[in-house]
Every structure is written in C-alpha cells, then in structure tokens.
Amino acid sequence: MTENITLIDYLKTRRSTPAFQMREPGPSRDEIESILRLAVRVPDHGKIAPWRFIVYSGDVRERISMQLSAIAKANKPELSEEMIKVEETRFTRAPLVIAVVSTAAPHAKIPEWEQVMSAGAVCLNLLMAANAHGYVSNWLTEWMAFDSRAFPILGVREGEKVAGFIHIGSTDFPNVERPRPELADVVTWKD
C-alpha cells in the first residue's frame, strides 16, 4: 500500500484557527463552489444528502450579526459592553461563514443517527477543503445554533438543525498546537 505523505502530513498538523483571528481575503465565488463540491464527498447512506448549506458572505454578515445581537441582548439584558461587541460581530469575524444544516428525518431505511453523522462529516470536509484551498477555518456552533428565534434570520427551516457554522478566511496568526488526547485514554483494543 502506498501512503499519501502529503495527506498524512496535513492530518498531523490540522487544526482550527479561531474566527477572531481571521481576516480577508476569503474565498472567491468559484473557490467557494469548489470547496462545497469537495465537502459533499462524505459517507451518505442511501445517497439522500441529509444536509444543506447556507452561505453568508458580504454585507449580509453584518446585518445578521446585528439581528442576532438583538436576540442575545433580549436573552441576557445584563450583557456587558464587551459581550455586546462580541455579539455584534458574530458573522463578521471571518470573510465567509457557511452553515451546515442537518435535514435528518425519519426514513424507511436510513437511521436518523447516520444522517446526523453525515452532516458532521460534511462539516469536517468543509474545514479540510477550505484548508486545501489555502484558507484557515473553524467549526463553531454557539448559541444561535440552538435558539429557534435565530433560525428565520439564519435561513434555517422548521425541523432542521444547525450542525455547525464553518468560518473561513485568511490569517496572520501562527498555527499553535493544542493538546490532543493520548491514545491510551481513548482507544480500547479487543484483540
């Protein structure tokens, strides 16, 4: 068996870049479409594509951030000025945000759990596809992924769930490694 050293080297150093460390440029429309074409190449039992994408770019990110901020302030009237600023920049930290929306639903042959895992696989593929195009990325959910009052603002339909918001952009910050689990702590061998 031949090893793809380039892919192995990438996986040894793959990590997320915090969204607040991202800057322009983000991917072009053609690059976004290429990233999305790669992202959909995931396990998908039954070929039902139990997920969809919502792409947030340009000025819409600021409008959405402000609308989400209003919900956050209503949820927590005691928010500090610093946290209000955080809420007002939710979708403007990175040049591009892509929502992965799980459309998992009861199916005659495909367990719903498998459909949800397929949406998770799409999120990871989006991260790696963005990296392959020379961009940094981060998979976040945050409160708006679980607050149905935010769904109309975000374009999430009734019955859908947000698997994640993938933030994509460029950075000047160095990639810093973080602790990873020891295999002895997460692997059970049944020889």
Rank of each mutant, 00 (worst) to 15 (best):
E81M: 08
K161E: 04
A108R: 12
W189S: 13
N75S: 07
A130K: 11
P50T: 15
E33K: 09
N175S: 09
I166T: 04
V162M: 14
S102R: 01
K73Q: 11
N131E: 11
L11R: 02
I110K: 04
G26T: 00
F53Y: 15
P43L: 06
N75V: 02
A94Y: 02
V97F: 03
I64A: 10
P111K: 06
E88F: 09
Y10F: 15
Q115T: 08
L7G: 04
V156R: 06
P25L: 12
T2G: 10
I5C: 01
L36Q: 10
T2I: 11
W113N: 03
S118T: 14
V186R: 12
K73T: 15
H45G: 06
A74P: 02
W113P: 03
R90K: 09
E24T: 12
T89K: 13
D185P: 02
K190P: 02
I32P: 02
A108Y: 03
A49L: 11
I54P: 04
R90Y: 12
V162K: 05
E182L: 14
A104M: 11
R61S: 10
P95V: 01
M1C: 05
Q67V: 12
S102Y: 00
D172K: 00
V55E: 02
A99I: 09
L68I: 15
L7K: 01
K73D: 03
L127Y: 00
A145L: 11
R63N: 13
E114S: 14
R157N: 09
Y56G: 10
R52W: 13
L96D: 02
W189P: 01
V42H: 13
I166N: 08
K161G: 04
A163M: 08
Y10H: 11
G155D: 09
V40S: 03
H133W: 03
E3T: 06
